[in-house]
Amino acid sequence: MPELPLPRSNRGIAVVSLFVSLVALGLKYAAFAVSGSVALHADAIETIINVVAAAGGLWALSVAERPADHNHTYGHYKAEYLSAVAEGTLVVITAFVIGREALEGWFAPHPALVPWNGLLLNAAATCVNLAWGLVMLRAGQARHSPALIAGGQHVLSDVWTGVALVAGVALIPFIGWPRLDAVLAGLVAINVLRVGWEVMRDSIAGLMDEAPDTETLDEIRQIIVANGVGAIQAHDIRTRIVGAMTFLEFHLVVPGAMSVNAAHDICDRIEHALRAHMGSTLVHIHVEPENFVKRDGSALNIPSSGCHAAPSTTVAEK
């Protein structure tokens, strides 16, 4: 898939996402209107939440991009997590609404469903969502944006739902079992519930300042070791990722006779390397003399010649 030019700001991407959601909603409601399919109606209902979520994501990203102020000295990045939690909640509610539609369709199946025009419209909406969902997910991962990642995951879940519906509803006239329409709607509800739970779980983890994954932590350790030549040890490393911003703090042990300027140069070197690798990063380093060396195995020892391999010691996280 070719790379599409994207707005520079996450807020710009959210504006496009809202427009795409409205286009998909129009196509899916048209699909339901011409077919009368309960399953396609359930898919259209789910797309309403896409529109609401896109509007919420636009608000959250607008807030998250505001600079730090006297009331929010660490910035407004967590607004993205609030949006993602709200989106997850809406998705879960939608799952129950769709489930009700499925039950009604089961007890009162449509007697004469002719779905072809509706399926074509739904397939068109699915293609639109596939293209945009991939763009959102890639942009969110590249920019470390929870709101964009959650939005992309939500849109892509809608894609797989759409594929299943197109295939399933197309079978109804051939197998002559109208209740398959309600079964498909029920499967849509289960899938939507799953996505809602995943979005909420990841967002709550961010709000609770959960530590990054092991791979990210290992990369941080390697950078400190490779760029901390002249220091003795780093310990009490703590990090959290809030939206596009990484917060990192640790204690750096240096020789007691080292000058302030030399210690400051080491700190600068580490900070620049971390920012070059991780993007926006707020680093706080507490410099200590050598009598503060920890010997309990929880610290990160820095070889005098530097090292680019992953250190064998562990790091105390929180």
Rank of each mutant, 00 (worst) to 15 (best):
A54Q: 00
K78T: 10
S35H: 08
I45L: 12
A164V: 05
V242I: 12
D202R: 15
T126P: 02
L6A: 11
I220L: 09
V38Q: 02
R194W: 15
G133H: 03
L6T: 11
S304G: 09
H110G: 03
L184M: 04
V260R: 10
F174T: 08
L148K: 01
P2I: 13
I93N: 00
M200D: 01
V188K: 06
G206M: 03
W59V: 15
A167R: 03
A42H: 05
G12F: 03
G36M: 10
I266N: 08
L207Y: 02
A139C: 02
L134V: 11
L18A: 08
N122H: 14
R295L: 15
L22Q: 02
I45V: 12
P303Q: 07
S304F: 12
V155T: 11
A14L: 00
V242G: 06
H308Y: 14
S83L: 01
R138A: 14
R66H: 07
G57C: 06
P109V: 02
R179C: 10
T216I: 12
A79C: 05
I149N: 05
L18H: 01
H72C: 06
A164L: 10
A185I: 03
D236I: 06
E101H: 08
R240S: 09
V63E: 14
L90E: 00
V169S: 05
H277R: 14
L252D: 04
T314F: 05
A273K: 03
H277M: 08
A131Q: 00
E87C: 04
R66Q: 13
L165C: 08
G105R: 08
V38L: 08
A86R: 09
L274C: 06
N291E: 13
N191L: 14
A273I: 02
A33M: 12
A299G: 03
A124L: 15
K78M: 14
T216K: 13
T214H: 15
H76L: 04
L156S: 06
H41I: 09
G36V: 13
P173I: 05
S37P: 08
A170V: 06
H284F: 14
H154Q: 03
G243Q: 07
W177K: 12
V169I: 12
A273G: 03
P5G: 01
D296H: 10
V63K: 15
G186T: 06
L61R: 08
Q153V: 10
A299P: 00
G243Y: 10
V52F: 01
I45N: 00
V38P: 00
I232N: 00
N50L: 07
I93F: 12
F107K: 11
I149K: 09
V283H: 04
L171F: 15
H264D: 04
S145W: 11
V155E: 02
R269Q: 05
S203N: 03
Q222V: 10
A53P: 04
S305K: 15
E249S: 14
V254R: 11
I237F: 06
K318S: 11
S21L: 01
R11C: 01
H277P: 04
L180P: 04
L252M: 07
G297F: 12
V38G: 02
L282I: 15
W177C: 09
S21E: 00
A263W: 13
G133F: 01
H235R: 06
E215N: 08
